[in-house]
């Protein structure tokens, strides 16, 4: 295992929380300004990918274990689907915006546009988990050895 410079480790430790908060902001304001679930989720994941690159996959795997990232991935997708199906039941059409009446589309206010922020959160969760999972998986594969065994030892840790 290669040695990592102390400066890189230190700075990335300070940077990661800020990147994470920025990602949250992009997701939460997705229905008002550029951004939304996908870019926000990628930013959230990149905070963890920074840890993975600068401090090793073991540390990143401790911060966000493989199984939890997988759960984020699937839960996000399911929440989105549930919103769609609720629209089917409550709004009369698949993905209908059934919360519109509760939170009407007032421009520039955080609590507006009905189901869109919920969907943004769901997508953000999914992309966060999914992208991190993909990069973690590739980094395990890259090291060589048996990838399945590599993943198994990481899950046990």
């Amino acid at each position: 295992m290669m040695t990592r410079s102390l400066i890189v480790q230190r700075i990335s430790r300070w940077l990661a929380p800020f990147i994470f908060i920025y990602g949250l902001q992009v997701i939460l304001y997705g229905h008002l300004s550029p951004g939304g679930g996908f870019p926000g989720g990628v930013i959230l994941a990149s905070a963890f990918i920074l840890i993975l690159i600068s401090r090793g996959k073991e540390e990143a795997g401790r911060r966000l274990p493989l199984s939890r990232a997988g759960r984020f991935d699937n839960t996000g997708a399911l929440v989105f689907l549930a919103v769609g199906l609720l629209g089917f039941v409550l709004g009369g059409s698949f993905l209908a915006n059934f919360l519109q009446r509760l939170f009407p589309g007032r421009p520039f206010s955080l609590l507006s546009s009905g189901t869109i922020p919920v969907n943004n959160l769901a997508i953000g969760l999914k992309i966060w988990g999914g992208i991190f999972l993909a990069v973690l998986f590739l980094s395990v594969l890259r090291v060589g050895g048996d990838p399945d065994r590599g993943l198994k030892t990481m899950e046990e840790e």
């Binding site: 590739l138 594969l141 060589g144």
Partner: peptide
Amino acid sequence: GISLRLYH
């Protein structure tokens, strides 16, 4: 991912 596995 598949390429890495093939290389392996």
